[in-house]
Amino acid sequence: MEFALLGFSDIPNLQMFLFVMFLFIYVVTLMGNGIIILITRADQTLQTPMYFFLSNFSFLEICYVSITLPRMLINIWTQKTHISLFACATQMSFVLMFGNIESLLLTVMAYECYVAICNPLHYPLIMNSKVCAQLVAACWVTGVPVEIGQTCQIFSLPFSGSNQINHYFCDIPPMLNLACGDTFLNEMLVITGAVLFVMIPFLLILGSYSKITTTILKLPSATGRAKAFSTCSFPIMVVTLFFGSGIIIYLLPNSKNSSKTDKFLSLLYTILTLMFNPLIYTLRNKDVLMALRKLLT
């Protein structure tokens, strides 16, 4: 009826350091994404499709990080690792759900950048407010039912052995390691989901940015090339960290990854990229910096 999230209990001497570090990351993530949402709503010059997607992305990141970090902080502070079966299933469902939505939203943002650079004359027509709202709604609607079904299927498996999850949140690989019986079907469904929500969006994003790069290199003006690269280059680091770690965890066989490797890779796509995103979007974007100065003054 309950599990034990071992988290980082294998390094007892660093528990206070880990608590302070993760608390700092959580506060920075909330503040950074909250500021982006505020300035994109308050500044009229940022009422464009690009910043509409960015504000939705920041809201998603706040939801995403709040699923894992608060419980991990409580577990480190209290040294109590128990989590009920229902809470574990709920956490897994939301982590997978928000991960899928982020994957789809990054794809939409890459498409928006592609239209802006490669098809600027048709940009206002293609990226009108109605289409933008529909794209965001489609990301949320598509990501929800699939992962609820997958979570229900995983937690319908019998768990009669050890209840210790060697992870800091309820994720698919460690849960399948604890399940009894044949998990081949579940593993195939995990791979299928990873292909649909990780591999295909990643390839679409790479295709978009390859087209963007080709178009930018053809621009006659060096200033135009620099501005275009500045506008669309900041998601590349986010995409690499997020999709790279996701592909390794969910597409490689479990035997290829140790529990320590899984935990480190999970930190990349569930926590660290969420903290770096606001910094990347603000420090590399002059419009956002200008709007932030106007807000502060």
Rank of each mutant, 00 (worst) to 15 (best):
Y250L: 11
A291K: 15
Y114V: 09
H122L: 15
T273A: 02
R41S: 08
G149V: 04
A226C: 08
L96G: 09
I205R: 03
Y269P: 01
S266I: 10
I249Q: 06
K294C: 14
E102H: 13
Q91K: 07
S93E: 09
C139I: 04
G224I: 11
Y168C: 02
F243A: 03
T29M: 00
Q15G: 06
L121V: 14
L267C: 12
Y26H: 00
Y250F: 13
D43S: 14
K218T: 14
I101A: 09
L105V: 07
D43H: 10
T270D: 04
L185M: 04
A87L: 10
L272F: 09
F184T: 15
F202G: 02
G34N: 00
G143D: 08
L46V: 06
K218F: 06
K294I: 14
P145N: 07
R225F: 07
T192W: 10
T297P: 05
N163R: 07
L23R: 02
L85W: 05
L292S: 04
I216D: 12
V239S: 03
T192C: 11
Y281A: 15
E112K: 09
A89M: 06
H82N: 06
Q153P: 01
I191Y: 05
Y168L: 02
L295W: 14
M199K: 01
L6P: 03
Y26M: 01
G181K: 10
L252E: 03
C170T: 11
F159E: 10
F8L: 13
H167S: 11
V239M: 04
I76R: 01
E61P: 00
P70E: 02
L38C: 00
F155W: 05
L206D: 05
V141W: 07
S255G: 09
L176H: 03
L292H: 03
I117A: 03
N277L: 08
L283H: 01
D262I: 11
Q47E: 07
V238M: 05
P278R: 07
G161P: 00
I83L: 07
C232D: 02
M1F: 06
N100P: 01
L18R: 10
N257I: 12
Q79T: 11
F229I: 13
K256T: 14
Q44N: 12
I271R: 05
M199E: 02
K286D: 08
S58A: 15
T282A: 09
H167E: 08
L252G: 03
I216K: 10
S208C: 14
I67T: 15
N128T: 09
M199N: 01
P12A: 04
T297F: 14
A179N: 11
N277A: 10
I101V: 11
I37E: 00
T48R: 10
K256V: 12
H122S: 15
I148N: 05
G149F: 12
S266Q: 15
C88V: 04
K130A: 01
A138F: 09
L18N: 08
L23H: 01
L18G: 03
G246D: 09
L196R: 04
T48V: 07
G149L: 13
E102M: 13
A179M: 08
N100Y: 04
N56W: 11
P201C: 14
D171K: 07
V238L: 11
Q164S: 08
F264I: 12
L6N: 13
W77N: 05
L125T: 15
I25L: 05
V131L: 08
V288A: 15
Y168N: 03
N166T: 06
S266W: 12
V144N: 01
L23W: 02
D43C: 08
I191L: 06
M275K: 00
G161Q: 02
R284Q: 14
